[in-house]
Amino acid sequence: MLLEVKDLHAGIDGKEILKGLNLQVNKGEVHAIMGPNGSGKSTLSKVLAGHPSYQVISGEVLYEGKNLLELEPDERARDGVFMAFQYPVEVPGVSNSQFLRLAYNEKMKHLGTEELDPLEFNDYLKEKAKVVEMSSEFFKRSVNEGFSGGEKKRNEILQMAVLEPKLAILDETDSGLDIDALRIVAEGVNKLRSEDNAIILVTHYQRLLNFIVPDMVHVLAGGKIVKEGGKELALELEEKGYDWVKAATK
């Protein structure tokens, strides 16, 4: 098993948000975690990525059988955990290609494989950029600075393509996207989907799941998974609304 979350309780500023969450993810699977606002979706993403503002109260997270919670955010990343941000951060003054090459080479160093020089990396990056239909004009621009909402989200998927994570958590990647950008992002994710990795789609809406079809859908409410099923669950949810799940679990 790639990821196993057991009875996870976690929160921020002393407030418990996740109240006993369980989740199992295997390689080759795509899981959707759906839930209304405030259900704990973002908290789950941030706890998995290791955001310092979030505290784990109890429970366990095993990644490839190891205790993920013990690792610093950068160690998790080099071990193959990736989170696409809901609100990607702008890093002025640092170009996309400089940043991606540093990140890529840190990972290569960690794996004990060869690092790429700027020219080699540029070729690699060009190839990867096709995944999200990004032109090389974006490579020289500062990371996310002045990017539109859609460009920022595509840039997140480009980073995923470059870093080739084993576990990718896409935190509301569909929010704020128009239909064209959504299609590009979703197609990018589909191209990156493989037997060797797993993807967790965290989303409020079913819309994204028309493009990226999940193997499993989990419904999060009140800090717990309250319902699980196949891809049909998302459609049912869309039709009946979150109140249906909330009512059914009371």
Partner: peptide, 9 residues
């Protein structure tokens, strides 16, 4: 945090 999540020490 953003840079850390991309694996930079």
């Amino acid at each position: 945090f953003y840079l850390l999540t991309r694996g930079l020490p």
